[in-house]
Design a protein around this nucleic acid. Sequence first.
RNA 1: GUGGGCGUAGCUCAGUUGGCAGAGCGCCAGGUUGUGGUCCUGGAUGUCGUGGGUUCAAGUCCCAUCGCUCACCCCA
Length: 421
Amino acid sequence: MTFQAPKGTFDWLPPRSERALAVREAMSAPARLAGYGYIETPTFEDTALFARGVGESTDIVSKEMYTFEDKGGRSITLRPEGTAPVVRAVLQHGLHNGRLPVKLWYSGNNFRYERAQKGRYRHFSQVGVEALGAEDPALDAEVILLAVDGYAALGLTGVRLLLNTLGCKECRPAYRAALQGFLRGLDLDDATRQRAELNPLRVLDDKRPEVQAQLAGAPLVTDHLCGACKAYHEEVRALLTAAGVSHTDDPRLVRGLDYYTRTTFEFVHGGLGSQSAVGGGGRYDGLSEMIGGPALPGVGWAIGVDRTVLAMEAEGLFGEEEPPGPVQVYGVPLGEDARRRLFLLLTELRRAGVAADMAFGGRGLKGALKGADRSGASYAVILGERDLAEGSAQVKDLASGEQIAVPLAEIVTTLKERLTT
RNA sequence: GUGGGCGUAGCUCAGUUGGCAGAGCGCCAGGUUGUGGUCCUGGAUGUCGUGGGUUCAAGUCCCAUCGCUCACCCCA
């Protein structure tokens, strides 16, 4: 082998690749039913779009983005996430000057320069929704429900919804200061001590036991909310409960960046290994301004397609793998003239909506029938010189082995009829 | 960036104290000059991840390197 996929990436191959398609379809369907329009943004953007949004509070910008200079000297970054490009597009095209909220969904690939592990790769695929221009707890609840319904449609039962609020620019600073005060009193390594100053909320989800043990008495954001944030959060919770959505309040659930406000949530699953989130999102009322736009509240989520497939596999939701590109009818030609005629017949079948394949490469009858068997087709159409002379073909039921001669002109209708009953 | 495990056929893997590179599955063909699945027989496919070293001899031992994998850090 001379080449392989770049480090940290992988290929989706049939038949497993069908699972990724199924996830994209199922996770986007609820959004389409709720008035969300499809948006597709470039795979790369101006580096500053991501750099400004992320800020200096983490080393994401310097270490985890695929950044390069293009031939025109512009700094370009491969899209590491979907929200900033969507907000950029909304602002650029003035979508927020029309009917609000602007509701959009997307599906695409993202790129992050990280060390790979289970469920985390340098190239990954997400489906997401964003709703901009309204600050309404019902919108937060709607967005969450779209994901809940998507997971349910896939048959997933082990997805848990973790819910929290991060407060707003009124109440968060006080909480942040309180948390910082607490963290300064702990026995932490230098790197963590530094994080406590830059990004104190993130220290809360450090997994190291020696850190967690010290966090037992840490101040919680839910105890520092202003009245408006408290009421907002209660309303979101009430709406979810009324819709029959169970959730777990997790006051340690955080986002590291300043533009996140209020509602924050994650969907976690136990079958994924260490990277347990299959999706996540929240409200980001500060993002628009951070990238140079007007005040424009927004809420949304992104779900990981790859991780969702892993979760489904962990739940055993897929049975026997189907053959790649399953077909209903398989053509078996015997001889050159028959092959040409059969090729036309297959074209007719496909145009009539019947999934059909045939034996290529001049295999013998036996080999071609074996191919028919492997294809998963229900019927084989066998055409040889003898049949051709009679103007008919042999239609063979591959399950029962029964075979009948059918006039060539009637093959398409005969097969369509048999396949629909 | 840190640490553990692993690299042998398309896939899953075995390979003894260093001594002719293997099995199962899959694939192809034959057993039926026009009939698949089960069965039988045969066949093809390897830079043993790569590069060095030790040795009469290396898949096996040593060093380096690349990759895969899992976890930590990080996680928009």
